[in-house]
């Protein structure tokens, strides 16, 4: 018996194709020959196949696909049989998935990358990490607040960076920078003065904000909205109460 490692490529081919091999491999060649010989028994076609072969009519039978590109053909035939709504949904899912993957890989050109990132962050819970270091940016925001508290606040509140439902801060990060008050001291008195001031659209993301700054932006936004609503209702109620009491 020859060692097992002597089954080289030529020997394997000879065995599989039925060509003569070394005498030491005769039992193996015989076994392969038995397998080959066992598959030579004639077989009768089914009644339907026999009938269709006799007539040459194979209409109504799902044709087998050519072996060249089965997957593409299969997809094409499936799309051909799908409803228009299913085609649209399938196309949208494919495009959105591809865009998300390309965006996650950072493969889009600069402007398109930022736009698609903001769109995906708006419509999904996915958030993309920017490369810039967050601590510097937190420092920048802190400087702006401390130097111009009255002028900077009205611009900030209505521009949430992350959509509703998104976690405001990444796990492990403090929600607020230490030592920073949640509501700036000068903010409440300003709100009644501007009750009708249009807020920035909630869905408009701010491109220049960075991940480390998102928690601050959301907190400010929530405070701004809440103060505005409470102030307006409270003033209205007080006015009515005073009028009734003074009349009689």
């Amino acid at each position: 018996m020859l060692p097992l490692h002597l089954l080289d490529e030529d020997t394997v081919e000879a065995l599989l194709t039925g060509r003569p091999v070394q005498p030491g491999l005769a039992p193996l060649a015989g076994a392969v020959g038995q397998i080959r010989a066992a598959s030579r028994q004639p077989v009768r076609p089914s009644d339907e196949l026999a009938r269709r072969m006799a007539s040459g009519d194979f209409t109504g039978i799902t044709p087998a696909l050519p072996a060249s590109e089965p997957a593409r053909r299969r997809l094409r035939s499936w799309l051909a049989g799908a409803s228009p709504r299913a085609r649209v949904v399938t196309g949208a899912v494919v495009v959105f998935t591809g865009l998300s993957a390309a965006t996650a890989a950072g493969a889009l050109p600069g402007g398109a990358q930022a736009r698609v990132e903001s769109f995906i962050e708006t419509v999904t819970p996915i958030s993309f990490q920017r490369d810039e270091p967050a601590p510097d940016l937190v420092e920048d925001v802190s400087d702006t607040r401390t130097t111009e508290p009255g002028t900077s606040r009205p611009d900030d509140p209505g521009k949430p960076v992350t959509p509703p439902g998104k976690p405001e801060t990444p796990p492990g990060k403090p929600e607020k920078p230490p030592g920073k008050p949640e509501t700036p001291p000068g903010k409440p008195p300003e709100k009644p003065d501007n009750p009708n001031k249009p807020e920035s659209p909630p869905g408009k993301p701010e491109k220049t904000e960075k991940p480390g700054n998102q928690g601050n932006g959301n907190g400010n936004s929530g405070n701004g909205n809440g103060n505005s609503g409470n102030s307006g209702n409270g003033n209205s109620g007080n006015g009515n109460g005073n009028g009734n009491g003074n009349g009689p």
């Binding site: 598959s39 269709r52 044709p63 050519p66």
Partner: peptide, 30 residues
């Protein structure tokens, strides 16, 4: 058909003859 049936039979097909007929129906239709 004989070799296709033999392949299907040795591969453990439950009904190799019927499966062979299905194969050829699809092949001839395509």
């Amino acid at each position: 058909a004989p070799v296709v049936t033999g392949y299907l039979r040795l591969q453990g097909a439950a009904e190799p003859d019927d499966l062979t007929s299905e194969v050829f129906l699809g092949v001839f239709a395509g």
